[in-house]
């Protein structure tokens, strides 16, 4: 019974899960590029038949009960043999995996996610992806308050289309650009860990609470009890996306509708309410050790 954590020691979610594994006195091992002396021996076709060589010895992979996958996203180094082996393990192991790489790929297309979120019963904002400046201008004119953000999983700041951006709409002709009607309301971040649901209300003056503007007060975070139907929808979302660990971006609009924007496959849950983040880390750690 060993928990594997694939991630950087200084990454807060990884550190939080590692801390709980230590508090539980559970055998665990962190793997990453910054850990020296690591090697994966074995056949990728049978990932659990392999052995992980590490500084303190070796670990037969059939002893791994759970794997937390949060590799560093620094975009620097190409994937090496160890990473390819870990991808194969995460993809094919019968152990509990948070999350399998192929399921995490849904985050590469926000409109792909958005359509599925609508099917799951969430409200979704009117959205346009366009390379046509005239169409972009017409969308902005018809909806009044409009934001733009990346189409892909590349991290981008959600930005309101103001006069300065409106003047630059001619530039959309070079790249499909995503516009959405701004939905006024209160952000709610929901984390799902298997059948556990944690909701956190985020009150912020900024269009993107991750990036408060100059003079904006920091976002106010508070745990929130979700309505039962929304909670059930979040669990259904986690299942539909095959992401047992996920961070779902919701907004309760001023007219009390629940909008969904995105499903995060590798959520930075430590950015939200501290006590809740600790509970999420504990839930992940315990799940990594539990037999399936």
């Amino acid at each position: 019974m060993v928990a594997l954590v694939w991630g950087a020691a200084d990454d807060p979610p990884v550190a939080a899960v590692m801390s709980w594994l230590e508090r539980l006195g559970a055998p665990h091992l962190r793997v990453a590029d910054d850990v020296s002396g690591l090697a994966l021996h074995g056949d990728c076709d049978e990932p659990t038949a392999g052995t992980l060589i590490h500084g303190a010895g070796s670990l037969p992979l059939d002893r791994v009960t759970g794997l937390y996958v949060r590799p560093p996203d620094d975009g620097a180094a190409p994937f090496g043999a160890l990473d390819r082996g870990l991808v194969a393990l995460a993809e094919g192991a019968s152990a509990r995996v948070f999350n399998r790489p192929s399921a995490m790929a849904s985050n590469h297309s926000k409109p792909y996610q958005l359509r599925r979120l609508a099917v799951l019963g969430f409200a979704v904002p009117e959205t346009l992806i366009t390379t046509t400046p005239e169409t972009a201008r017409a969308f902005c004119a018809s909806h009044g308050a409009v934001i733009y953000k990346s189409v892909s999983g590349i991290r981008s700041r959600v930005t309101r289309v103001g006069p300065a951006q409106f003047e630059r709409l001619e530039e959309v002709r070079w790249c499909p650009t995503q516009f959405q009607r701004h939905v006024a309301g209160v952000d709610v971040r929901v984390h799902v860990v298997e059948d556990a649901v944690f909701a956190c209300e985020v009150r912020s003056q900024a269009d993107d609470y991750r990036y408060p503007g100059e003079g904006d007060a920091p976002a106010h975070l508070a745990p929130l009890a979700l309505p039962e139907d929304v909670r059930a929808r979040c669990l259904a979302t986690s299942a539909a996306f095959a992401l047992p660990l996920t961070g779902i971006d919701l907004r309760r609009s001023n007219d009390s509708r629940w909008y969904a924007f995105e499903v995060n496959p590798s959520p930075a849950f430590t950015c939200f309410d501290a006590a809740q983040a600790d509970a999420i880390a504990e839930t992940i750690a315990r799940a990594l050790l539990a037999p399936r």
């Binding site: 409109p111 958005l114 359509r115 609508a118 979704v124 009117e126 959205t127 346009l128 992806i129 366009t130 390379t131 046509t132 400046p133 169409t135 959309v172 002709r173 070079w174 790249c175 499909p176």
Partner: peptide, 20 residues
Amino acid sequence: SLACAGWDYVPGRATQARVA
């Protein structure tokens, strides 16, 4: 082909998209 004006897509309405 995608780096030019003329592509319009509203998620959920694929057949109403415009293709350049």
